[in-house]
């Protein structure tokens, strides 16, 4: 490996890309369900202002 002190910033960046990039071995990481879908739970959280309140469609109120 060449002496780091003698390398320019661009050379360092290039060298880091060459030897630093981790092995490519993809894994799927599915997003998990974290919040309850039950209407009671959702309205409770909305009541406590802990979740954004869904915008009321004016047509639904009619």
């Amino acid at each position: 490996m060449p002496n780091v002190a003698s390398l320019s910033a661009a050379e360092i960046e290039q060298r880091v890309r060459e030897i630093g990039t981790p092995v490519a071995a993809p894994l799927v990481m599915p997003k998990q369900v974290l919040e309850s879908a039950r209407p009671l739970h959702r309205s409770l959280l909305a009541l406590l202002h802990l979740v954004p309140v869904p915008r009321q469609d004016p047509r639904q109120g009619l």
């Binding site: 894994l27 799927v28 990481m29 599915p30 997003k31 998990q32 369900v33 974290l34 919040e35 802990l50 979740v51 954004p52």
Partner: peptide, 17 residues
């Protein structure tokens, strides 16, 4: 970890979202 721990973004803005 991969199959169980993919964290979604919570709806809404921080601090609770």
């Amino acid at each position: 970890f991969a199959e169980s721990c993919g964290l979604p973004e919570l709806r809404g803005k921080p601090p609770f979202g």
